[in-house]
Amino acid sequence: MPLRNAHPSVRAGGAGRTDEALPPPAERRSPRPVRGSRTERLAPYVLIAPTALIILALRLYPLLLGVNFSFTGDGERNGTAVGVDNYRELFGDPLFRTALGNVGLLVLLLPVAVAIPGLLATFIYLRVPGHRLYRSVYFFPAVLSPVIVGAIFNLLLAFDGPLNAALSRAGVSPVDWLGDPDVAMFAVVGVHVWATFGMALVVFLAGFATLDSALLDAARVDGASLLRVIWHVIIPRLTRTIQFVFVTTMIGMLTSMFGLLYVMTSGGPEGSTYLPEYYIWIQQGQMNRPALASAASTVLFVIMLVVGLLQITLLQRAGRDD
């Protein structure tokens, strides 16, 4: 064990026997030069400097530039300060308000997006017939890119597509899944959930692995129904897993819907499926309004900051409970 011998101090507190081999603490500290203590004091700063500088130069500085840029004008007013004009325009734009409203809708739909993988993971854990097959089948969509998923569902959900054909055979009148403003957002979110729940399912299954099966057996012996088992045993024991899935699903919904929206609806119909990201992209790329897009980015950043802080609090609290 040459390594361990080279750093005896690491093990110092561990075993009483090794204490004899070491000089007393005071003696150990005294021969160290004063310079060394300063080096030691500076060492952490030096060590985090690369990370800190990278964050500062490549994250925070551009962020400041972007925020600053959002207070300048577009087009003819390029480079001149315009105060909060961009923000006023932004909140006066019904399209941006729709986009913000859709963020709220996503938050409201979050429980559904978490419940689906949770429920399916429960079934797999309870070994319903064919659970091995389902485990891989459920995960499969998670490996597809949003563009491919979007293209597949564009075909399936087309007005003259197979889903509507099946509905009409069942005597239900066809639904314009991606052309009806009241339906389109739900259709896209549904597809997003379908495409991403595999990952959450895996996390749930990992959570189940830590579940004490004796508790389940005890509940069964007591004659508890499936619903009661889920409510009184599984959910309380998986609180941390559920919270974690909530946080990651939220992040996924707020940050990675762009590809699907782009392919499936292009923000339409009637602008009903706009999200802030898509709005930013349209303003910057199509409308040539980079400063307005900056303002929208700043608003999105603030929203994400608030959501992020809430999530950190949530996770910390969950950690403390444990």
């Binding site: 500085y61 400041l64 530039l65 972007g66 600053n68 840029f69 300048t72 480079g79």
Partner: peptide, 14 residues
């Protein structure tokens, strides 16, 4: 210093 640099006009630069 960062704010001053950022504050000098637009991020587009002239």
């Amino acid at each position: 210093a960062g704010l001053t640099v950022a504050g000098c006009g637009s991020a587009t630069g002239s």
